[in-house]
Amino acid sequence: MHALTVQPGRHGSLNVRQLPDPSPSGQELLVRALSVGVCGTDREIVDGAYGWAPPGRDRLVLGHESLGRVEHAPPGSGFSAGDLVAGVVRRPDPVPCGACAHGEIDMCRNGRYSERGIKELDGYGAQLWCVEPEYAVKLQPHLQTVGVLMEPASVVAKAWEQVERVGGRSWFEPQRVLVTGAGPIGLLAALLGAQRGLDVHVLDRVDSGPKPLLVRGLGAAYHTGDAEKVIEEVCPDIIIEATGANALVLASLTGTASYGVVCLTGVSPAGRRIGVDAGSINREIVLQNDAVVGSVNANQHHFRQAADALAAADRNWLERLITRRVPLAHAAEAFEDQPDDVKVVIDMRD
């Protein structure tokens, strides 16, 4: 089989290699890959800035946004040959910490977790892969062309769950949500907001291309321009921040209506400093009973929520979210930015 591999920590090491076909253990599923998605984490690994190879090896099979079809499933696994599946990314730490011991692997407290295609475990960027049934999630058959969105949708499903849990500390009946950033995470966050019947607003820098059309296709409002002005005009009950841009993060912290919830999902680059009035930020959050929560990764429960959200979505809208498909033989092209990229996917089929 062919696999997309990289040497973590070494820029320019990305290549497609011939590897032996995997042999599933008695309890594993054998899955033939259909596609893998490319995200910022993958780009950081390819650039040599992130990632860990499996112990004792210098190369990692890339790919944590997966979609495949089951070729073999052991009896009693709950899966059958032909099922469309995605693989969960994270695995619990071996200790385990309290969170991992309770199945909340996305909340690992000691950092000893591992992740397929990122940290110490080969990813799903191979034409065949194995996965334990408890870390596989089934998708509806009609999602074959778009089911690769499962992993980013699971991250968004967790973010929404966090918002609702935090808001549920008291009476909570939000009407408006502002999503900052119209990348895949932001657009999927807007989708799940629309599915909740909220008045959805999306703020992004670009004023042309596919992003405004995708937002309007949800019946949502698309905004560009000065972030603080947009936030003030919308006065959202919820902000889901999906850029990690320092100015947007700071504007979001005090941008909600009273008793609002801000969920930070974008990872900010380190070392970029800007001056802030910390006292005013603190005063606003305290006096308005606001809450700020960070959210990253997902567990099996969130993957199942994502599968339900994708099944309920307009498939044509989901297909438009995937703006570029690259064959495995030309996988390097998937890591080259193009102006109208939203979601780039690598086709793993021959």
Rank of each mutant, 00 (worst) to 15 (best):
D207P: 01
D207M: 07
D207F: 01
D207L: 07
S208R: 14
S208W: 11
S208D: 14
S208G: 04
S208P: 00
S208K: 12
G209E: 02
G209L: 01
G209Y: 03
P210G: 07
P210D: 10
P210N: 11
P210T: 09
K211S: 03
K211L: 00
K211R: 15
P212E: 11
P212A: 06
P212S: 05
P212F: 03
P212W: 02
L213H: 14
L214K: 05
L214R: 06
L214T: 06
V215M: 07
V215L: 09
V215H: 08
V215A: 12
V215W: 00
V215D: 11
V215Y: 03
V215G: 12
V215K: 00
V215P: 11
R216C: 09
R216H: 14
R216Y: 04
R216S: 13
R216G: 10
G217R: 01
G217M: 01
G217Q: 04
L218K: 03
L218C: 08
L218E: 07
L218I: 07
L218Q: 03
L218W: 09
G219V: 05
G219E: 08
G219S: 06
G219N: 07
G219Y: 03
G219K: 00
A220C: 04
A220M: 05
A220W: 01
A220Q: 05
A221T: 15
A221W: 10
A221Q: 14
A221I: 11
Y222E: 05
Y222V: 03
Y222W: 11
Y222Q: 08
Y222M: 07
H223N: 05
H223S: 05
H223D: 07
H223M: 03
H223W: 15
T224W: 12
T224F: 10
T224P: 06
T224Y: 09
T224D: 11
G225D: 10
G225A: 09
G225L: 12
G225N: 09
G225S: 11
G225V: 11
D226H: 14
D226P: 01
D226C: 13
A227V: 15
A227R: 15
A227Y: 12
A227H: 13
A227T: 13
E228I: 10
E228H: 14
E228C: 11
K229V: 13
K229P: 00
K229W: 08
K229D: 12
V230L: 05
I231R: 02
I231Q: 00
I231M: 06
E232M: 08
E232K: 12
E232Q: 13
E233R: 12
E233A: 15
V234Y: 03
V234N: 02
C235I: 01
C235Q: 14
C235L: 14
C235M: 14
P236K: 04
P236T: 08
P236S: 09
P236V: 07
P236C: 11
P236W: 09
P236Q: 07
P236M: 01
P236N: 07
D237V: 10
D237E: 10
D237F: 02
D237I: 08
I238A: 05
I238R: 04
I238K: 11
I238Y: 08
I238V: 14
I238Q: 02
I238P: 04
